[in-house]
């Protein structure tokens, strides 16, 4: 080693992964607890999930393809992707701005802003949808003005977009705020004293520091944006092939007793959930180390 002359060595960097015994419960209690939780998971999670895939494939591969490639289904998939493609970047920008403001500055009304960010979590999605109807619907505050200008928000794609952004906006901000707060501003201040511009500081220092929590937030935000039902159902008007997202499409099919087709589209959403889950788990491993590393400094 190049610094062999120096008496200090690299610290023990191995993360503490030693297994811990939480308490002195006997093995039987442990066993019972594990079995109970697994049984619960099977009953309420795995079983329904598996049944979705089983039902989806019940009529065979051909019927499955048919159900997904049917024009209304394709339109629903396209709309869902479109909504997510706009709502997610929007939330990334909002989340970064809000987290930055909260973590790096002191200002009046900060705790109020934090509570407001949580609002969509505590409000029923149906209410969130109704708020937009109240604002932009035909009888709403801006309704007459919108009608006069030939703009359509409710029962159209913009309404779906607004409702989706509203219900998803806590996801990115909520992941970033605690992480940025724990990091403090020393890295940014260092970069600035070293002569970096604000932009360079943001893109080379801040963003890489929080990239894992940002990605994690994006993942959750995306899953919710694609899966949102309540708020979207209120503002969509369910015009087939025009304002139906995948969850709405599933519901329509199901109500029309087209169970197999409904489950085929539902299986796509379930697949998305599984992919999200896997990525989330992988990230949690990475993320745990990244957080531990940031604490070590």
């Amino acid at each position: 080693m190049s610094d062999a002359s120096l008496p200090y060595q690299i610290e023990d960097l191995a993360p503490a992964r030693a297994a811990r015994r939480v308490s002195g419960e006997s093995r039987i209690v442990q066993f019972v607890l594990v079995v109970v939780s697994l049984a619960f998971l099977c009953l309420f999670l795995f079983l329904p999930l598996i049944s979705v895939f089983v039902e989806a494939g019940a009529r065979g591969w051909h019927a499955y393809r048919e159900a997904i490639l049917e024009p209304d289904a394709l339109a629903a998939i396209r709309l869902t992707l479109f909504i997510a493609a706009i709502a997610v970047p929007f939330n990334v920008i909002f989340g970064l701005a809000a987290a930055w403001a909260i973590a790096k500055f002191e200002f009046r009304g900060k705790s109020l802003l934090i509570s407001f960010i949580d609002l969509p979590f505590s409000v029923s999605p149906v209410i969130s949808g109704l708020v937009f109807v109240l604002l932009f619907g035909a009888q709403g505050y801006f309704g007459p003005w919108l009608a006069a200008n030939d703009l359509k928000i409710i029962f159209a794609v913009p309404g779906i977009l607004l409702a989706t952004i509203f219900v998803t906006f806590p996801f990115v901000a909520r992941e970033l705020i605690p992480h940025m707060q724990s990091l403090g501003s020393a890295d940014e201040e260092t970069a600035l004293t070293l002569g970096a511009s604000g932009w360079r500081t943001f893109f080379t220092v801040t963003l890489p520091n929080v990239k894992w929590s940002l990605f994690y937030g994006v993942l959750l935000c995306n899953a919710r944006a694609m899966g949102e039902f309540g708020a979207v159902a209120v503002v969509s008007g369910k015009i087939r092939g025009v304002t139906t997202t995948m969850p709405l499409h599933v519901e329509i099919l199901y109500n029309e007793y087209m169970g197999a087709a409904a489950f085929a589209v539902a299986s796509l959403l379930a697949g998305l959930a599984l992919v999200t889950l896997v990525l989330k788990t992988v990230l949690e491993w990475r993320f745990a180390d990244a957080i531990a590393a940031s604490r070590r400094h």
């Binding site: 201040e189 260092t190 002569g195 220092v205 890489p208 520091n209």
Partner: peptide, 18 residues
């Protein structure tokens, strides 16, 4: 800040981890 040309070393070093 850039024109000041200050070499500031923070208490906990603030090395860029990434």
């Amino acid at each position: 800040l850039r024109e000041r040309r200050i070499g500031f070393v923070f208490q906990h070093y603030a090395l860029f981890k990434t």
